[in-house]
Design a protein around this nucleic acid. Structure first.
Lengths: 177, 177
DNA sequence: GGTCGCATGTTGTCATGTAAACAATCGCCC
DNA sequence: GGGCGATTGTTTACATGACAACATGCGACC
């Protein structure tokens, strides 16, 4: 079935894309780890909390927002609790759940890392591309995202937040007040 | 430093890109696992072997090619050995090393999965995009790859093969003879 | 031909993720 | 108000990956 084979253009696009995706991710993750002692997972959680009212969010909702397994969140919170960036507090009105609360230390850690995070996106992504290129990428990526959503109804939402949530949903900082 | 903030276009590109990268990867990995019982790591190793003369490759070279830690390769090979897709054979002329050898079972597994792999790339990537979009993506991705290489001399090579190697470096099948 | 630094793998330890079994609680329904 | 299925978290395997400590063989240098 040579019909299946990829032509040169497709192959080149594929490989370039794969590299890009690894490179960008690696730069950001490494910087977080090296300069701020945070994993991406830590950062995502802190970002979510910093955007939540009162800097707290129920575990269930955090898991939903990040599309994480409950067990994964449970462990992650335990780790972060150990490091002192978040704390557990009983949820009001439901003895089953608890709220994840941003501690002062967590707030500090996040505020320290946030500018570098944005700067990282600039440095290895946004500033490297021209306006035209950004538009072209939006076109390409949204085309693929659209195709994916259309064919993976269940999974569509799954993808949604896990990673995009990790990022500046908008221009301003989440809460750096 | 509001100067650091991302504008709307940049934010949109970033989020769309993040989704795209997860979606595509997820589709491919899931298909491999579900339909062929292979992890991505398994597949990469099998692909490399299937392209190597005599279907064997020294461990050191495999690790270099994939940019894996030696320990990672060691464990991966052990797992695959258990499952019977590869075997270890002493390297000629150097008692320290060994060759990873593709077994008949491994060959069969790879040949079964390969068309689906290519089809997956088609389905969720190549066929979804127009020729213009492919060109635009090549432009964008290679711009970023170039920028990365220029700023991460050491790391540049690191990225190289781990993932792109996982893929059809060219149009035809590696060795499906 | 002996020694020493380097190359090559393996293994122990820790971090992290998934899946499934558990435990506790809620809430609805009778 | 009792029961029961659904929710929500935790925990217990396992799988996987990074890093460092080891063990061994190679090779060059004296």
């Amino acid at each position: 079935m040579d019909q299946e084979a990829l032509d040169e253009r497709e192959t080149r696009a594929w490989i370039a894309f794969q590299r890009m995706r690894i490179e960008v991710n690696e730069v950001l993750a490494r910087r977080l780890a090296r300069d701020f002692g945070l994993t991406e997972a830590d950062f995502v959680v802190l970002l979510r909390l910093s955007r939540s009212p009162e800097h707290r969010l129920r575990a269930r909702d955090m898991a939903t927002a990040l599309h994480w397994e409950r067990s994964r969140l449970s462990r992650q919170v335990s780790r972060m609790e150990t490091r002192g960036t978040v704390a557990r507090a009983p949820s009001e009105g439901d003895a089953r759940g608890y709220d994840i609360v941003l501690t002062a230390a967590g707030r500090t850690a996040f505020q320290a890392a946030w500018p570098a995070w944005v700067e990282g996106i600039r440095h290895c992504f946004a500033d490297v591309l021209s306006r035209k290129q950004l538009d072209a990428l939006i076109d390409v990526a949204e085309t693929i995202d659209g195709h994916y959503s259309a064919h993976h109804d269940s999974g569509a939402e799954t993808i949604d937040s896990h990673y995009s949530a990790a990022l500046p949903g908008r221009t301003e900082r989440p809460d750096t007040d």
